[in-house]
Amino acid sequence: MKVLVPVKRVVDYNVKVRVKPDQSGVDLANVKMSMNPFDEIAVEEAVRLKEAGTVEEIVVVSIGPEKAQDQIRQALAMGADRGLLITAEGEVESLAVAKLLKAVCEEEKPDVVLLGKQAIDDDRNQTGQMLAALMGWSQGTFASKVEKDGDKLHVTREVDGGLQTIALSLPAVVTTDLRLNEPRYASLPNIMKAKKKPLDKKAASEFGVDLTPRLETLKVTEPPKREAGIKVESVEELVDKLKNEAGVL
């Protein structure tokens, strides 16, 4: 099989972002950027499938600024074979991303597209589903297990009630959840090797996709602040406060 792994450059998960005073967005100047953690899980899964002999080739694609090269190189260092950077400045919405990925799918003809269930910056959880829709492909979202079974892909999904396993006809789109695997760190020799792996570059404008945003962000504000309360000295005091002060027991 051939796997396409879209990855997004996002604010590192350890960063506590600050809202800009003019409410135009969050302050991203000098903030650490990383590969979206769920996409890292997708890269890892693709590499494991390759190591198991189920996958022959892994292509990584990122849509974003020039700097998103760093995230593609990281994926190449983890074991992907080649990369494609689609450069676009500013925010590209999930629907436009899905349309660009559709164009990539038509050219690359992957059997599976593996990507994160959500990006931890905009928390939208939709790109994979949208791509599946545009391609008319099956989708297995929130995957905690992915197995090839004959000509089907079995995907176990983390759902509100527990776990659900479905069988998908190929080609398919699979989005990853946290329990799918624990991504590896790239070794130094592999980081060196990744520098020589092919990385193509195209501009988003070359694809003939309308990138005009459908959502306008009117403002970005701080969430309501929660004040820290008090420390209680004992379990007895806690129960007393919950019963008599807060009235929640």
Binding site: K16, V17, V19, V26, D122, D123, T217, V220, T221, E222
Partner: peptide
């Protein structure tokens, strides 16, 4: 957005 560290009006 951003794990609830900001709220966007869209």
């Amino acid at each position: 957005i951003y794990a609830g560290n900001a709220v966007a009006t869209v």
